[in-house]
């Protein structure tokens, strides 16, 4: 009887230890679909702390010419995360976290964050990408992400705020609760780019959990194709038929 009591005590102690270990060691589950909440997010600082060259680029922005989204190009990082218009899907595995956006431009913009893999040393032969190169690590309940080597052709917001190839984005993703919206995913961002900003820019982006939301395939090229080409072709053929009938 005494030995059963000891076994029971050991079992309970082990269970409690495992439970507390899992609570401390296991990262939070941030997977799922999330919708941006503009009212809880922060706007871009006004005035923007721009360098002289960045101010000149900003003033020269021509949305008809310089807006990549008009050409079905990606929003790029960090605009995909900060735009406030794109739903977000987080896919979480033990060694990586993927942030998927489908902002109606590409079929998907997938930011791949590899955990515990340091960013590589700078290499002038390596080309920047629209989504950049990201590395992350869990610091307690917060996912800290660093992103570098983002394509300078991308812009940071719809007003034409540009950046250089030296942009570095630091993010801290964590869960929170809101009395109205319930479960939130909060991203505190710091943008550093000596060619663009005279001081780091801090932004907060908040997403509300939306388990029933579904991200859909982008339609950007399709819309242009159908509207501008396909219907045009059909009109051409119809006109040709009419001309032939006369």
């Amino acid at each position: 009887m005494r030995s059963m009591w000891r076994i029971g005590c050991v079992a309970m102690a082990s269970a409690a230890a495992l439970l507390s270990w899992s609570a401390v060691a296991a990262p939070p589950d941030i997977s799922g679909t999330w919708l941006p909440v503009e009212s809880l997010s922060t706007p871009w600082p006004d005035p923007l702390p721009l360098t002289d060259s960045a101010r000149a680029r900003y003033a020269a922005f021509d949305p008809d010419r310089d807006e990549p989204a008009s050409f079905c190009m990606p929003l790029g990082t960090p605009r995909n995360t900060t735009s406030g218009t794109s739903a977000l899907e987080v896919l979480q595995a033990s060694d990586r976290v993927y942030f998927v956006f489908q902002p109606n431009l590409l079929n998907a913009e997938t930011r791949r964050v590899y955990l515990g893999q340091p960013l590589p040393a700078a290499d002038p032969d390596r080309l920047p990408t629209w989504l950049g190169m990201s590395s992350g690590k869990w610091e307690g309940q917060t996912l800290a992400v660093e992103t570098i080597e983002m394509e300078p052709q991308a812009i940071l917001n719809g007003n034409g705020l540009t950046h250089s190839g030296g942009l570095k984005v630091r993010e801290r993703w964590h869960l929170a609760r809101d009395p109205e919206r319930g479960r939130l995913l909060v991203n505190d961002l710091v943008l550093e780019d000596a060619d663009t900003f005279s001081s780091p820019v801090r932004l907060k982006r908040v997403f509300a959990w939306a388990p029933d939301a579904r991200l859909a395939e982008g339609q950007c090229s399709e819309r242009l194709w159908i509207d501008q080409i396909w219907r045009h072709r059909l009109r051409e053929h119809a006109a040709a038929r009419k001309a032939g009938a006369k």
């Binding site: 076994i7 079992a11 269970a15 495992l18 899992s22 296991a26």
Partner: peptide, 16 residues
């Protein structure tokens, strides 16, 4: 050993 196994078995439902 039996006590250890029993303890682990009891703890399993709580594992991540």
């Amino acid at each position: 050993r039996p006590a250890l196994l029993l303890a682990l078995a009891a703890a399993l439902p709580f594992a991540p």
